[in-house]
Amino acid sequence: MILTLARKELRSLFAAPSTWWMLALLQFIVAWFWLARVDDYLQVQAQLAQMESAPGATIAIAAPLVNVLAIMLMMLIPLFSMRLIAEEHRNQTWLLLAAAPISPAHIVLGKFLGLLAMLSLIIVATGLMMLTLWLGTPADPGLIASNLLGVWLLAASYAALGLYFSAITRQPVVAAFAALSVSFGLWLVELGGGALRALSPNLHFQNMNAGLVSSVDLCYFALFITAFLLLAIHHLRRELEG
């Protein structure tokens, strides 16, 4: 049942031209940045060769690229997630799901997985770009893997957040704005420093960006995602079952 909903969600995401435009734009910017980093690296390569422990190509090129991808996903995911449930309410298609023998948990998980599948494609595309590093230099597969895992978990967190806001409002634009405000706020919290930093998904992503995969960060992401999915399920359940 969850898979039926996820497949449907993935299909309707790809049925919208705006999805293709956003994906193309994202891919273009990531590729541009990638080439710019490679270019910079090649220019300083001569100096780097003189240094004792010079940064490798992976940490100089791949890690900053994933960092840029993370910030772009923060801005783009609300645009994808806003429609998930809010639009069903607006187009009255919600009643099809509401009258079907499925639970709110099915709906929320199905939609979350559908969106996550699409986001995984973006991350896989970026991963493929990084594989080209091996064409010119030995790269660090561990660092690349931790970066990709980190950005995937970050994307899943933003998707869960966006899904929650899409569940509690009937206006997709409001859902997008709310999700963007919260994720941007959490990003600023991380930049601001202090004890509150631990709340921000970005801080936990930064560790993985640097190549450190710790169970604390993994737990944090699992908690963040579960919390927002449960909130969304709870909200829909109250709406359906009183």
């Binding site: 309707s12 049925a15 919208a16 187009n91 009255q92 298609t93 919600w94 009643l95 099809l96 009258a99 079907a100 023998p101 499925i102 639970s103 359906l240 079952e241």
Partner: peptide, 20 residues
């Protein structure tokens, strides 16, 4: 609700159609 709704077909006032 899962068992009860399985015996039920519902057409709302505005058909719940995905236009795409």
């Amino acid at each position: 609700p899962d068992l009860a709704k399985a015996c039920l077909g519902y057409l709302p006032e505005q058909p719940p159609l995905y236009r795409d």
